[in-house]
Design a protein around this nucleic acid. Structure first.
Lengths: 204, 204
DNA sequence: CACTCTATTGACACTTTTTCAATAACGCCA
DNA sequence: TGGCGTTATTGAAAAAGTGTCAATAGAGTG
């Protein structure tokens, strides 16, 4: 299916890098990191193993590049924050995030899986992406108006975003009778609800 | 250190299996799954590589068995539910879970990481353990009294337990000024607070 | 239409996983 | 107590995967 043409196909380094990274992200969605062997990827791409080493030094570096690409893609494609009142902005951010996961299920899955099971470097890449999202949602979208920043609330927001991730992934896998709007509303409303539960945080 | 005795030590299949699984779990606490090579394990156990294959077919199956054992250990050591009124029982369960993670930090982290980053089977094992924990917390400790079971609440409870896991892991890594009791209270109080946020779920 | 530049290959070295016929520990029975 | 059979265990060798590098051949250029 790949490589119907004669013997070699010579691409520009940029094109080839793109191709290999994209393929990597796609393949990673349906298998774990260590099942993503150089052999498999080379075969799927229709190239020799040697070429992969030419572009990415070794397996680890390749994995890192794949994960980084998934993360960059997430950050880039997720809509930047808009203005408006805090809760509305929070909803908008969440919607952008949800839509991204729906549209790029594979890439997102790759990112999450690799990050959770991977080494320090991989987790950092993931954390970076998450911070970037949380940064938008927490610090820009909602803070100052909804949430005071204390160690306890920071912890809770961290927990909240883990919850959001789980909810989105679960919902995408099986929405059941829950609509997109209901999901968004639950996620958005959860944040203030959780903050209220923090001791010494209840306003009014 | 191992194997001071003569050449071979012949154990009963059960004993050997136990030994290898226990050792596997112990080693997994300080390294990732794919750093847990057959070579390493065989050496640490003082046996030949061949014997591992005799007991566990291949590396994957061995990993699976190790993760399953770690999961079983978690479930077993976590205190079974006590009786009392629902919120008190929820608190007790959460405390047992938290204490387990504190006492077995490395092992627990390994379990989570291995499961999250692994293949379908590994993730299923982890899901099973999680369901079992949720089962206690949700169905036995709190249900019928606090939470009606609908698709939406099921989703929310799932999200809540992801949050609890994240909170516990974050807190164990760096408690900051948050006390154990505050953490427990926040986690326990979160559950009803979240359920209230589900549309058509607000009781009174 | 050569010619050059460099993307790409393939064969080889090395590490780790997997196989399996041969070996020897342990319990049993005389 | 000592031979004997069962089977847990080994070790060597095949297979699979990772990494290296000099040789090869596309594709644009003058």
């Amino acid at each position: 299916m790949t490589q119907t043409t004669s013997h070699r196909t010579r691409l520009s380094p940029e094109q080839r890098r793109e191709q290999l990274l994209d393929l990597g992200v796609r393949l990673l969605a349906t298998r774990s990191l260590d099942e993503l062997s150089i052999d498999l990827l080379a075969e799927e791409a229709g190239i020799s193993r040697g070429l992969l080493y030419h572009y990415f030094g070794n397996k680890h570096d390749f994995h890192e590049a794949v994960v980084r690409r998934a993360a960059d893609d997430l950050i880039e494609k997720t809509a930047p924050p808009v203005d408006g009142e805090p809760m509305a902005r929070l909803l908008t951010s969440l919607a952008a995030y949800l839509d991204y996961v729906v549209d790029n299920h594979e890439g997102y899955l790759s990112l999450v899986k690799a990050a959770a099971g991977g080494n320090e470097t991989l987790r950092e890449i993931y954390e970076e992406a998450r911070s970037s999202l949380n940064g938008r949602i927490f610090r820009e979208d909602a803070q100052g108006t909804i949430i005071p920043e204390t160690p306890a609330t920071r912890l809770v927001v961290r927990g909240w975003s883990a919850m959001v991730e789980e909810l989105v992934l679960s919902w995408v896998a099986d929405p059941g009778p829950v609509t997109r709007e209901e999901l968004l509303e639950v996620m958005a409303a959860s944040l203030p609800a959780l903050v209220e539960v923090v001791p010494g945080q209840r306003p009014a």
